[in-house]
Structure formats: C-alpha cells, structure tokens
C-alpha cells in the first residue's frame, strides 16, 4: 500500500471549494464539505477532463464540461453522461496539513 502524501495546509481550501494538486504522477482534487476534507482523482470518468474546473454543491461535484455529477464522499456517478464512479482517495489531517493516500 502506498503512503500518505502531504498535499496542502488546511487553510488553503475554504468550505465549498475544490482545488487540484499534483501528487507524485497523479492529479488529485481536494474539497471541503461541512468541515471535512475529501480527495478524489481530478478526472471526470466520462472524458478525463478536470472536475476541479467544475462546481461543488454540498457533496455533489458537477463537471463543467458535460454536466456529469458525482458524490465526493463515495465517488458514485449521479448523472449522465458519466456512468462510472470516480476514484476516491483516503484523507487524513495532521498538524493542519492535508495528507492523501493514493490507492
């Protein structure tokens, strides 16, 4: 199993905001929902476009390119044109820093 990677300080991501980071050779989006941080692969499962360009409402992220929607907690695809889930990464907070574990 791979280790946790430091991504950013918690202060960098506001409530209801998504930011994208490069972690090793992977692109990871991190968002804050109801005070909790969630991380997922920054790629829509429909056409590999960045989900971090889209909007987040509650726990639903919407791809700004073709309107696909996903649950950021479970990765589940909620709306066409996406049918496959997005990949979710484990997150931990230590000393006000966000760490992400690539699966």
């Amino acid at each position: 199993m791979s280790d946790f990677h430091k991504v950013a300080p918690t202060s960098e991501i506001e409530e209801g905001e998504i930011k994208s980071f490069i972690v090793e050779s992977e692109i990871v989006a991190v968002c804050k929902v109801d005070g909790e941080y969630y991380a997922f692969k920054d790629e829509c499962s429909h056409q590999t476009l960045p989900l971090s360009d889209g909007d987040i409402q509650g726990e639903i992220v919407t791809c700004c390119y073709h309107g696909a929607e996903f649950n950021v907690k479970t990765g589940e695809a909620l709306c066409l044109p996406a049918t496959d889930p997005i990949e979710i990464f484990e997150v931990k907070i230590e000393n006000d820093e966000i760490f992400v574990k690539l699966g």
Binding site: S20, I27, T48, L49, P50
Partner: peptide
C-alpha cells in the same frame, strides 16, 4: 495537449503540463 484534443481524449497530461 488536453483531453479536449481528440487524439489525447483518453490521456490526461495535467500531471506533466502542471508539473
């Protein structure tokens, strides 16, 4: 290139272009 280019549709190069 980005996934909006048809020839790169399935390959996201952001880990290269943003590095």
């Amino acid at each position: 290139p980005t996934p909006l280019d048809e020839d790169w549709r399935f390959t996201n190069l952001a880990p290269i272009s943003r590095n």
